[in-house]
Each structure stands twice: as C-alpha cells, then as structure tokens.
C-alpha cells in the first residue's frame, strides 16, 4: 500500500469515528446530578427492607419465622414468645443483619401478612459497619418513613398524607396489565 493510500485510510477511519460521534451531539443529556437529584426508584425495587405497621400502629408481623427460614444469607433473627392472652405469638426481637443481606427479597416473597416489604431507600452508607445491623425499631422507622412499598401479597401500597394505607392504582402494580386491559374492554 502506498503512503498516500495509507494516509487516506487513516483519514477515513478518523472521519468515520468522528461522524458517528457527531451524530449524537444534539442528544439530550442523561446525567442525573445525584446528591441534588435523586433517581426514580420503582416500587418493586429492593433497596432496603422495612417492617410495616398497620394504620393503628400495631405490628403486621405475626412472628411465623417464614422469612428467617427463607433467607439464603441467614441474616434474620427472630425471637418470639407465646401470647399469654389468646393465641399466636408475640414478637420479642426482629434483627436484620443488613451488612450481609443479599437483597434477594426472598423474605418478602414468603411473608404471609406482608409485614416485611421492600422499599426504595438506598442511601445507607456508614462509617461504622455495625450501624447496619438493624433491629426492629430501626426497621419500623424505615417503614414509617416509607411512602410506597411492595410485597407480593398486597402488591404496591401507598401511604396517603393522612396516614392511611391504600393499594396503588394498577398502573403501578406488577400484573396490573390484566386489570388495565379488562378495564379497556369494559369501557
């Protein structure tokens, strides 16, 4: 190959790359300015786990130990005792070692009463690793702060401004498609 041809080849190669890059000049930016602009987290996303309480402030959790058994990473510790009045159990301790949690949401999947749920609260970096060992008070606090959460039994739920808990509209629900399509046909 002559020198001229080589030079032409190089110019063509560079021109081709520049053209491909220049095609994108007019595109809108995708960068989110993180500390000031938070990402949109879908309700089903597993960023943190929380314990949800009923509207009257009582625990949803019935201490059935299903989540403790389902956890692959074995980070949930539940202590319970027999309810002296009536049947069932009373929750004494609910510890979630969030350091070793693998965010699989198996616990959420098996919970029969939707007490443990996934929330989109992801900012939990700490200086001391032991601060990530969550106890029940901590998980309750996360649950009280949560505005929207997901559990397979009840689907996506929303906390209204007055504190009442309500099921989210089908546009936000996994499997809401069936309802939406049925609605269209009916209309």
């Amino acid at each position: 190959m002559s020198l001229l041809a080589e030079v032409w080849e190089a110019v063509r190669a560079i021109g081709q790359g520049m053209a491909a890059v220049n095609r994108r000049v007019g595109e809108s930016a995708v960068t989110e300015f993180y500390p000031y602009q938070k990402p949109e987290i879908p309700p089903v996303s597993v960023q943190f786990l929380a314990l949800i309480q009923n509207e009257d402030g009582s625990d949803r959790c019935v201490s059935c130990l299903a989540c403790e058994r389902a956890c692959p990473s074995q980070v949930i510790t539940i202590e319970r005792k027999r309810n002296p009045a009536g049947k069932g159990f009373v929750l004494e301790r609910f510890d979630l070692d969030f350091v070793n949690c693998m965010h699989c949401a198996n616990c959420v999947e098996v919970c029969p009463v939707s007490a443990i749920v996934t929330v989109g609260d992801f900012e939990h970096a700490v200086y001391d690793v032991n601060m990530l060992k969550a106890d029940k008070a901590f998980l309750d606090e996360i649950g009280r702060r949560a505005q929207v959460w997901y559990s397979p039994k009840f689907g996506v739920e929303i906390r209204k401004p007055d504190g009442s808990i309500e099921k989210a509209p089908p546009e936000m629900q996994p499997g809401g498609l069936a309802e939406l399509l049925a609605g269209e046909e009916g209309a």
């Binding site: 500390p35 970096a125 690793v129």
Partner: peptide, 20 residues
C-alpha cells in the same frame, strides 16, 4: 473508612458513600 451496603449497591449508593 466507609461501608456501602448493597448486593450490589446501585451506583448512586456508591456515590453517597463517596460523598460521605
């Protein structure tokens, strides 16, 4: 110095750790 929880943490969570 800083522990970022997650498995894996989303990029924004790492960024929060770096800001910390």
């Amino acid at each position: 110095d800083v522990y970022v929880p997650g498995c894996p943490p989303r990029p924004e969570a790492l960024l929060q750790g770096l800001l910390l």
